[in-house]
Computed example of a mutant assay.
Amino acid sequence: MSSHDVLIKNALIVDGTGAAPYKAELAVDGERVSSIGSDLGRADKVIDAGGKVVCPGFIDVHNHGDLSILYYPNAEGYVRQGITTFIGGQCGSSPAPIDEYVVEGTILYDLIHEMKPAMYYPSGLIKRAEFNPRHRELVGWEIDWHTMGEFLAKVESFGISPNMVPMVGHGPIRIMAMGLDYERKATEDEIEAMKPHMKQAMKDRCRGFSVGRDYDPGYWAEKSELIELTKIVAEYKGVYQSHSLRTGLRKARRPGEFPPPKINGIKEAIDVGRQTGAAVEISHLGSLYDVYPGGSPMLDEAAARSTLKVVDDAIEEGLDVSFDVIPNTGGYGLYSTTHLVSFLLP
């Protein structure tokens, strides 16, 4: 009779293939599921699932945990939700590349406000030389990396619970080339200066490139800049992930200024893929046509279908386009999110 490291009995298996759930035993040896079936033998550790679901870990395809993983390497909040892999580096932000200015401390809001108080629009950018001494007092380590490769080595030295798939953000790459003078179109020389940072990040095992088109500094880029950088991503068979332009720069507008047409944002993202050959992932897609006044299910459905048709047409064209959503009625927004379980109901 076989002997295993771990044996889970009386489990309801949901295997992720779309097949109907079924009752079985599951054996684990080392770091792998070695067998699923009945009467699998003995084990050093036996767990009675009591009829509960046993399934593959969830993959969170849009996550900013790369900015906090060194502070919370066990990532209990993810693991307790069944998330075993997350894709970080979203919306144009990532922990590297960095030089004089660092961005990692943006999750330490109290520290940022202490060092750079601001009434309306606090900046997460702070000089490394100023930030590190205070940061070391609080957490015991410094932000000592410059490239994504060096950051990932730091993560591996800490040891983390979930798997992390890194993306490199457009924001830090743009700042490396333009400094804080980023509220404008980049010159050709500046775009050329961005390219080595992109190439290095892809060599450092980043899965792709993300942009945040509603935020500084990504808002100020022209599509031609994004295309030039994504050409490098395509060379590595990477993914272009777009927080598409839909609200416009998320700062106060002058009277008479209006947000851009939301649908144009995903059209831009798709065209970047079309012109570079890179796969495109549209972040937290929601209905991109406003219905006012609201309250009409028929009009809401028409707006959603019209949004999805743009994606469907791109796929029909032969482009590699996909999207993720936030499980709520509006499609996006931390403060309107309900529960992941709403997507798992039968």
Rank of each mutant, 00 (worst) to 15 (best):
M1H: 12
M1A: 11
H4R: 03
K9W: 00
N10T: 03
A19L: 03
P21D: 03
K23S: 15
K23L: 12
E25T: 11
A27H: 06
V28G: 07
E31P: 00
D39V: 00
D39W: 01
D44C: 04
V46R: 09
G51E: 10
G57P: 04
L67Y: 09
P73R: 10
G77R: 05
R80P: 00
T84E: 08
T84L: 09
T84V: 11
G92S: 03
G92V: 04
A96Q: 05
A96L: 08
I98T: 15
V102N: 03
V103M: 13
Y109F: 08
K116M: 13
P122A: 07
P122G: 06
G124P: 12
I126H: 09
N132E: 12
R136Q: 12
G140V: 08
I160S: 05
N163Y: 11
N163T: 13
M164Q: 11
M164E: 05
M176A: 13
M178I: 04
G179H: 05
D181I: 00
E183S: 11
A186Y: 02
T187G: 14
M194W: 04
K195H: 01
H197D: 01
M198P: 03
K199P: 00
K203Y: 05
F209H: 07
F209Y: 15
F209C: 01
G212W: 10
K223Y: 00
E225N: 00
I232Q: 02
E235Q: 15
S244T: 13
G248A: 03
L249H: 13
F258D: 07
G265A: 10
E268N: 02
E268F: 02
G273M: 04
G277Y: 11
S287A: 14
Y292M: 11
G294C: 02
M298H: 12
A302K: 13
A304E: 10
A304C: 08
D313L: 11
I315P: 00
E317A: 12
V321C: 02
V325F: 02
G330F: 14
L334M: 12
T338M: 06
T338L: 10
